[in-house]
Design a protein around this nucleic acid. Structure first.
Length: 283
DNA sequence: TTGTGTTTTATTGCCTCC
DNA sequence: GGAGGCAATAAAACACAA
């Protein structure tokens, strides 16, 4: 039998090939498997084999190679091409169609595996970046908390020492005139204002002086007792962007109060200050 | 040789398109 | 409604270790 040249005319010269070419290139002398085209070739084994039409038979290496090359050229099978391939390979058109169908399924599976690998490596890279950034963020948060607490302690320490000094120097009732015209709450508030005002300049100069000898004293503070101390030492759970950190720095000036830093809330100090127990001074 | 896992061929059922 | 594609699956063929 002569094999017809299978030229994929509608695809281009690159795809021009024939089953005979593939067969020769493969160096095979084995006859092609032709389960549905019984030839009288005198091969008893094959003859016997062909008399089992219900058996599933594998295509020969050459047939598969030919189909593979055809698949590389075009993975879809037009009817005309299917018939031609079947004729060339001595198969039934349906077999060719099934082979292409299964081959497309295998190709798709492989493609999915490749896509998965690409996505996984991309994910791994992103995760590494995220982990690094997360560590950096935690480090910066700890730094902010440390500095905040340090500043607060210094303020409280200065405030209490000023008060005790004034008590010692003068036995007269403090701000009596003012107290006469104001409520009790206003008295304490006003007196606190007086002492706080004196602290402003020194507080500013000491703000980030962690080497100050007062820093590690564990200063007792009535302010801490009266207020919500848990807010002061509670680790900040918020994420600080650069802008938020800038706002925080600004908020540390005049109202020397450090409310609990809620998530993402560093930009609106006045509102939160009003309700805060530490708030005892204003312009 | 045999048990077991993998690959390949083929079927079935459903869906879409013309 | 028929043809063809696809997903799921069956089943035969194959590979290979024990």
């Amino acid at each position: 039998m002569a094999f017809d040249l299978w030229c994929i005319n509608n695809i281009g010269s690159r795809s021009m090939m024939s089953f005979a070419d593939v067969h020769q290139a493969n160096g095979s002398t084995r006859p092609f498997f032709r389960p549905y085209e019984h030839e009288d070739n005198g091969d008893d084994d094959l003859d016997e084999y062909f008399h089992q039409p219900e058996k599933k038979r594998r295509l020969t290496v050459d047939q598969v190679q030919f189909l593979e090359r055809s698949f590389e050229v075009e993975n879809k099978l037009e009817p005309e091409r299917k018939i031609q391939l079947a004729k060339d390979l001595g198969l039934q058109p349906r077999q060719v169609a099934i082979w292409f169908q299964n081959r497309r399924a295998r190709w798709k599976t492989k493609q999915l595996e490749k896509d998965y690998e690409v996505l996984q490596s991309s994910y791994n890279g992103l995760k590494a970046d995220y982990d690094n950034l997360f560590k950096e963020k935690e480090k910066l948060k700890a730094e902010v908390n440390l500095l905040t607490n340090e500043l607060l302690l210094k303020e409280k320490e200065k405030g209490s020492s000023e008060l005790s000094d004034k008590d010692a120097l003068s036995q007269e009732p403090p701000k009596k005139a003012i107290a006469d015209s104001a409520s009790e709450g206003e008295v304490s508030k006003t007196s606190t204002v007086a002492c706080q005002q004196e602290d402003i300049s020194s507080a500013k100069s000491d703000m980030f002086d962690s080497d100050s000898p007062h820093f590690a004293d564990g200063v007792h503070s009535s302010l801490l007792e009266a207020g919500d101390s848990s807010h002061v030492f509670e680790p900040d759970q918020s994420d600080l962007s650069q802008d938020e950190e800038d706002n925080l720095s600004k908020s540390l000036l005049p109202p020397y109060v450090f409310p609990k830093l809620e998530d993402g809330d560093y930009s609106d100090p006045p509102a939160s200050f009003e309700d805060h127990a530490f708030w005892c001074w204003s312009y």
